[in-house]
């Protein structure tokens, strides 16, 4: 696999560039997912987000997820780019592109990849709300580290 299929960037993501990496003459489908910054979560207003990563391990883990996809959906191609640093509302935080010969595996693999990212890739999101900040602590994006400790 090309080494630049899985990367992290501190700049705005060029979505087309991620899609171009999975273009394949034998694939008739490309499913692209964009994760974007949401303003309102359960009545709380987000002003901005900050993403941090354990960069070398995050890239390695994204590549491992790519290998899982190729085992589960042979013939699929995967490219993932995750942004780091400070993001504003509606900015693109992550782009996942999957191509496959037919459309169903592309949809399925794309959804699988996002679940795995939220489970195991060492990337963290800090929310900046109107009334404070908090590192977000689980993949459901609802519980902070502090709340977990108090459970």
């Amino acid at each position: 696999m090309q080494s630049n299929l899985f990367n992290l960037t501190w700049e705005p993501i060029d979505v087309q560039q991620v899609i171009d990496k999975v273009v394949d003459r034998n694939c008739g489908a490309i499913a692209t997912f964009l994760g974007t910054v949401r303003e309102m979560t359960a009545g709380k207003k987000t002003l901005q987000l900050e993403y941090q990563a354990y960069e070398p391990m995050a890239v390695k883990t994204l590549a491992q997820i790519g290998e899982e996809v190729q085992r589960k959906w042979p013939g699929a191609n995967v490219a993932i780019t995750h942004r780091l640093g400070t993001l504003g509302i509606s900015d693109v935080a992550v782009v996942v592109a999957v191509s496959s010969p037919h459309r169903k595996p592309a949809y399925e693999a794309n959804a699988y990849i996002m679940e795995r990212i939220k489970e195991m890739v060492p990337i963290w999101k800090k929310e900046f709300w109107e009334d404070g900040t908090q590192w977000i602590g689980d993949q459901r994006e609802t519980t902070s580290h502090e709340e977990e400790g108090n459970r």
């Binding site: 994760g35 993403y51 990563a53 354990y54 391990m57 995050a58 995750h82 935080a93 992550v94 996002m114 990212i117 939220k118 489970e119 195991m120 890739v121 060492p122 990337i123 963290w124 999101k125 590192w135 977000i136 602590g137 689980d138 993949q139 994006e141 580290h145 977990e148």
Partner: peptide
């Protein structure tokens, strides 16, 4: 060694 608190990428 790295401590990996619950992740929240995506």
């Amino acid at each position: 060694v790295a401590f990996i608190p619950p992740v929240s990428g995506g």
